[in-house]
Design a protein around this nucleic acid. Sequence first.
DNA 1: CTAGGAGCTCGAGTCGGCTCTAGATCAACT
DNA 2: AGTTGATCTAGAGCCGACTCGAGCTCCTAG
Lengths: 134, 134
Amino acid sequence: MSTPDGPAAPATLSIGQVAARTGLSVHALRFYEREGILADPVRREGGGRRRYTEGDVEWLNLCIVLRSSGMPIPEIRRYTELARAGAGTEPARLALLRAHEQRVLDQLADLQRSLDIVRYKVAVYEDYLDGLPD
Amino acid sequence: MSTPDGPAAPATLSIGQVAARTGLSVHALRFYEREGILADPVRREGGGRRRYTEGDVEWLNLCIVLRSSGMPIPEIRRYTELARAGAGTEPARLALLRAHEQRVLDQLADLQRSLDIVRYKVAVYEDYLDGLPD
DNA sequence: CTAGGAGCTCGAGTCGGCTCTAGATCAACT
DNA sequence: AGTTGATCTAGAGCCGACTCGAGCTCCTAG
């Protein structure tokens, strides 16, 4: 074995491993940390290198979902801060998530309307090309 | 009447009126024209001011749909160029629209996945808050 | 002991899509 | 003639979200 973890080792990951697992670049991971959207400021091993836990990775995966569905980074930071603050902030976190749910629904509706229009245009071109002389 | 159009007047619109109708800013309208995504380079009245036809506005509305569903400006320009080129380019236009349709479908699927996850989290918080002591 | 490769920080650069400014022109009203 | 308000052009600026580069440190293998 090239990585003989001791029995009690919490199995942490390097930034490169996390990049591979999440699909984010190492640059993006450091950027996200600077932006304060990681659960904690990430532990460092002797030498200053980041060690990510599985929990960190799960949190990142949630962040990726929020980002990709259009939540801006400042709002993810706000959510992160609430989570860090711990007990008592659950109502605020719920409100934030509900607001985001609504935004996603709005986006879905907008996209669906666009899709209908694009499909209509596609159908028009198909009909036209079908009915061509030769 | 404050706008006594002559009988044969084609009823053109100023840039401000088009902005009001489309929701785009006058800046954005000029920007779009520079980017070459308007059907024609827009007629000008004596004095250099733009006069938009209803056809121009319809084209803009299509552009707005394409943009808001994620088509980048260079691709809208490509589509516009094909349309300007006229007969014979219909297959290319159809292909472009179909590709966009697929992109929209992908976005819808992604968003739906995100929505499911956000809803799951919302449910978790709701359950937690429901079950609170007081 | 040295060469590579992964990591580090800090700061600058990029990209897409507008947005805004400055300074001039023009149309219409008073 | 003067004032107001819409438009014009060319070009600079901005914002969000990364991306990249320089220069340095560290660890491990040969």
